[in-house]
Nucleic acid binder design. Structure first.
Length: 686
DNA sequence: CACCCAAACTTTTTT
DNA sequence: AGTTTGGGTG
């Protein structure tokens, strides 16, 4: 996020490449933009340059990884255009087609829905909706109550999702990534068939469908050529995190690659679990008839050289990648530290001590972040922060939209929006006291037989105890569905009908009502129901902090984030938790060399977030939720295999708390004692 | 048929 | 630790 608006030579090159040339003269462009090399700035300048050279705003397609990045880019491009145009700034064109792959796909699909036999007002399901639908279908297919268990709904969805996104057959996916589900391949196949049909019946598309449908649409020549004519230039950010389907969409839409610019950093490809493949970016140069032009940005404006040396060394030991070495003008800085601590309590204490000290020296907490591999790794730290009244915001981990009361409210809205949406219908009806699965099923059946007109439910015969509440619900549903009240009041009406349900179902409804109010607030930022639901599903708030429109600027708080959620961000000081084998790399990656490489890149992402100070913390033992039946909740962290001698040479090793020369021996004694206990426990484990 | 309770079972990262 | 399943009660 360097504020500089000037460009270095390579950046300038990337900005101007091919602009003004005829389509035949501008082969595709690949920009390898390492961490902190001013990628956003470059992209913004290129977009601005396009606008300034007379390309119309609605013929530029810009795809980013998250909407936050999209908004930032659009704003920056706008500023640059205005700056250059000076007086005529007011008329400066605004980019129209900017968003994530998923949201752009949704937009294209709604636009061309009729031509591909799709309802234009389809509902977009989030991961939870999809999992719930699978759950229902699994019961309907009788895939429950069997001797050994059918995979959980989440697992089913993961399997399905990988099949779609990686474009590989079910048997292969199960064999490679879900070996313990191998007995269920046939059943899974029939489940997925039912799932596809059910989505079609209910006019629903899940995340994967957005890409899948778009991919198939892109392969219909008439439609593809229409879309191709619409866009003269296509820019894709974070290309290292695209999957086969996304690359396939690009290739189908723009087969010659003319006007196509992709930007990314293979060393930051960390979304393999979502079927992203680093091969997309590695192979990009040779995907087209005319080979792509490759420009590498290696001047880093974020960190001092000490941090970059660490990152460069780490990556140099990787078996794949372009391996662009980053260089900084800032040669001096605090050497990154590797901090040895006994356990996660000491780890938390160390961080708190350092964070507060840094704040005293003028680095506010907001400019410091604690990064970790998995959500619960910050549990201990959160407890300690709370005990000391230190405010913090956590990104990643538990999401606002996953809170059940928020899901309730959205279910009501979603049902009004799409009466066919069975999952929402059931969720909503079951909130009424006296209504369970059977009555809900009957009511839904009734609705289906009356062309899904909510009003028809007035004649539905329902047992007395639930009657009054049910009728009130039906009235609101009808009203909102028909848009007989304005959007702003629709949310209020829905919240009002929900309030008694909330009070009935949750003891702590007081706290939860706060979230309802926040949701009402948020909804006002959207022009209508469809947009609200679509955007919220496609780009959910990452933390409750994201929701308030004017975060209190005076407040200072520490940032806690998963490494994945930290992507694209930077802080003055960064602390990385639990840098030990099992986390970096994660134990799940142990057997697979390519997965291991992704883990290395993950550590690289964590490291390259830091501007001034970087602390990698390695506890001797740390807490994990019970994984095996026996054994401690504490796990002994072996030294991370990424911390080779060469890498450690880039680090200052320290112990916390500071200890004398003999303390190391006592430590290993501690470890041995606990190991004996483990083996004694295992004696009875046969 | 709805609702409550106890027991069993699994967890990375997220558009 | 939070969800999922099964059984018992009203």
């Amino acid at each position: 996020m360097s504020k500089t608006f000037s460009l270095n030579e390579q950046q300038q090159h990337a900005v101007e490449y091919g602009i003004g040339d005829t389509p035949e003269q501008r082969p595709p462009l690949l920009v390898i933009a390492g961490a902190g090399t001013g990628k956003t700035n470059t992209l913004a300048h290129r977009s601005a340059q396009l606008l300034l050279s007379g390309v119309s705003a609605d013929s530029i397609l810009l795809m980013t990884f998250a909407r936050r990045a999209a908004t930032e880019l659009a704003l920056r491009a706008q500023q640059i255009v205005e700056q250059k145009l000076k007086k005529q700034a007011k008329g400066a064109a605004r980019l129209q087609w900017i968003g994530t792959f998923h949201s752009v796909s949704a937009k294209l699909l709604r636009e061309h829905a009729v031509s591909v036999g799709l309802e234009p007002d389809f509902t977009i399901m989030d991961r939870n909706d999809s999992a719930d639908m699978l759950d229902v279908l699994r019961h309907e297919l009788g895939l429950t109550n069997t001797e050994h268990r059918f995979p959980k709904k989440k697992t089913c969805l993961d399997i399905y999702s990988r099949c779609v996104n990686a474009q590989s057959p079910l048997s292969e996916v199960v064999g490679q990534h879900f070996p313990n589900c191998q007995d269920w391949v046939d059943e899974l196949k029939s489940l997925f068939a039912a799932y596809a049909k059910s989505k079609a019946d209910q006019a629903c598309l899940d995340y994967d469908d957005l890409l899948l449908y778009c991919y198939h649409m892109a392969r219909v020549p008439q439609i593809a050529s229409k879309i191709r004519e619409q866009f003269d230039y296509v820019l894709v950010d974070e290309y290292q995190d695209t999957n086969l389907l996304q690359a396939g969409i690009l290739k189908a839409l723009f087969p010659t690659g003319s006007g196509l610019t992709v930007v990314g950093d293979d060393a930051q490809s960390i979304y393999g679990f979502r079927a992203a493949t680093v091969d997309n970016i590695l192979d990009f140069p040779n995907q087209f008839e005319t080979p792509a032009k490759v420009i590498s940005l290696k001047q880093n404006y974020r960190s001092h050289q000490g941090i970059l040396d660490l990152a460069n060394t780490l990556l140099s030991e990787s078996s794949e990648g372009f391996k662009v070495e980053l260089v900084s003008d800032t040669k001096q800085g605090v050497k990154p530290t590797l901090v040895h601590v006994d356990d996660d309590l000491k780890q938390a204490e160390y961080i708190i001590e350092r964070v507060l000290a840094a704040r005293e020296e003028g680095t506010e907490m907001k400019r410091q972040a604690v990064l970790f591999r998995t959500g619960y790794h910050s549990d201990r730290l959160e407890v300690e922060l709370t005990r000391r009244n230190i405010p913090f915001v956590k990104h990643g981990g538990l999401r606002f939209l996953e809170a059940s009361h928020v899901k309730d409210l959205l279910a009501i809205l979603r049902w009004t929006d799409n009466p066919k949406h069975k999952i929402s219908a059931f969720r909503v009806m079951k909130l009424l006291s006296g209504v369970g699965p059977k009555i809900a099923a009957n009511a839904f059946e009734h609705l289906a037989q009356h062309q899904f007109r909510f009003q028809s439910l007035e004649e539905f015969r329902i047992p007395q105890p639930a009657k009054a509440n049910f009728m009130a619900l039906v009235e609101t549903l009808t009203q909102v569905h028909n848009d007989s009240i304005a959007w702003t009041q629709q949310v209020t009406a829905v919240a009002k009908i929900y309030q008694p349900m909330l009070e009935l179902n949750y003891d702590d409804h007081f706290v939860r009502w706060g979230d309802v109010e926040q949701l009402m607030q948020l909804s006002q930022q959207f022009p209508n129901r469809e947009r609200f639901l679509t955007e919220l599903t496609l780009d959910p708030p990452q933390s409750s902090g994201d929701l308030s429109d004017n975060p209190k600027i005076d407040d200072d708080f520490l940032i806690l984030s998963t490494v994945h959620s930290a992507k694209g961000q930077e802080w003055a000081n960064v602390y990385v938790l639990n840098v030990a084998d099992g986390n970096f790399p994660n134990e799940y990656a142990a057997g697979d060399p390519r997965a291991l490489e992704e883990e290395r890149r993950l550590l690289n992402v964590a490291i390259t977030r830091a501007k001034h100070e970087l602390h990698l913390i390695q506890p001797l033992r740390y807490w994990v939720p019970e994984q095996q039946r026996f054994g401690d909740k504490h796990v002994f962290g072996a030294k991370s295999r990424f911390l080779t001698d060469k890498v450690v040479a880039c680090l200052d090793e320290v112990h916390y708390p500071k200890r004398g020369p003999n303390q190391g021996e006592i430590n290993s004694a501690n470890k041995a004692i606990a190991d004996i206990r483990q083996s004694i426990l295992r004696m009875w484990n046969n």
